[in-house]
């Protein structure tokens, strides 16, 4: 999920001397022939760097993404909902681990990647810096946030880097349940009391625009898209994906009897697409910079969990070493 093109500010690094024009051309020919690139294959240093950045941001997003929903596990309204939410949050942890694993095939260690997240150096999706205030937020996240994630991740299943593409296939299979359970929560609320329906509308009002921001900056300002497209890391542009998401989601809101918080939203008969209002990019960049409602809280929570788990990791390691020593003796 969540590859927002957060790499806007990346500095142009010096060309790697190993990236000779012949090698680059041969690599591009493989990509153009739709061959998958595998871990030990030669690849341009820029390709490796782009993947490490994008994949680790993606993995971090899965991990931080557990926090807004984890907030509601103990307060889920029924045992059924609690079991579902637990399974979903566990899936998100799993997705993070699949992608960290795939990233490690590029020659980086998970511990280093996690350290970058905890220090605040690495980015994760802006969407997880918004609070989950009511139970309707859990429905909305499944419906919109996981819906946007699916839209984003389906083209990644055809990404040129084999391990990433394979991880995405598994993630996409699991994500569908996430979206459907969310929409089911919304259905139930919208068929419920007036107060429940108001709750659903309120959650939609708060999550709609941040969900649209999940697709990243507009193509007009996204510098890195062209190279990622040429390398077939990215297959469809941010704006195209965003449009597809709007087109499929608006009718779903209508079915619920909810109103999108966008006065400019209108169906364009000529193009067959919905036209929608201007996204508040100022808000997007502020959240990315760390000034969203929950940025500080999310990082503090991750750091606390990491610190409080340290003795467990060390104890497990010490036990393993002791057992190995005993076996050797």
């Amino acid at each position: 999920m969540y590859t927002q093109g957060l790499d806007q500010k990346q500095k142009k690094s010096a060309a790697d001397p190993a990236d000779t024009p012949e090698r680059l051309a041969a690599f591009q020919a493989r990509i153009d022939a739709e061959e998958k690139i595998e871990p030990k294959d030669w690849m341009p240093s820029g390709y490796r760097k782009t993947l490490i950045r994008q994949m680790s941001q993606h993995a971090h997003s899965e991990i931080v993404g557990m926090l807004p929903e984890g907030n509601w596990i103990t307060r889920a309204p029924t045992l059924r909902r609690k079991a579902i939410l637990l399974a979903k949050v566990q899936d998100e942890a799993g997705h993070g681990l699949y992608i960290y694993g795939a990233t490690e095939t590029l020659g980086v260690s998970r511990d280093d990647l996690v350290a970058d997240l905890l220090s605040g150096k690495a980015k994760y999706s802006s969407i997880f810096n918004y609070p989950t205030i009511t139970w309707a937020d859990i429905g909305t996240i499944g419906w919109l946030v996981d819906g946007a994630a699916i839209m984003n991740q389906i083209p990644l299943c055809r990404c040129s880097y084999g391990p990433y593409a394979r991880a995405m296939v598994r993630v996409c299979k699991e994500e569908s349940f996430h979206q459907r359970q969310g929409y089911e929560i919304m259905l139930e609320l919208c068929r419920g009391t007036a107060e429940q329906k108001r709750m659903a509308q309120d959650a939609l009002d708060r999550w709609w625009w941040p969900s649209l921001m999940m697709f990243g900056p507009s193509d007009k300002t996204s510098e890195h898209s062209a190279q990622s497209m040429a390398w077939k890391i990215k297959r469809i542009s941010n704006d195209e994906l965003r449009q597809k998401f709007v087109d499929v989601t608006v009718p779903q809101a209508e079915y619920l009897g909810l109103k999108m918080p966008d006065e400019d939203l209108v169906f364009d008969q000529k193009t067959g697409h919905y036209r929608f209002g201007e996204i508040d990019w100022q808000e997007f960049w502020e959240v990315l910079k760390g000034n969203g409602k929950c940025n500080r809280e999310r990082l503090e929570t991750r750091n606390r969990a990491h610190d409080e788990g340290r003795w467990v990791r060390q104890a497990a390691r010490a036990y393993a070493e002791k057992q190995a020593a005993r076996k050797a003796a």
Binding site: A87, G94, G101, A102, E104, Y319
Partner: peptide, 22 residues
């Protein structure tokens, strides 16, 4: 895929949790 674990027994447990939830 791959997983991290302190020892073999934990590796099996983690593999089970991560790759066979369905």
């Amino acid at each position: 895929g791959s997983i991290h674990a302190a020892d073999e027994a934990m590796a099996l447990d983690h593999a089970r949790d991560l790759y066979t939830r369905r």
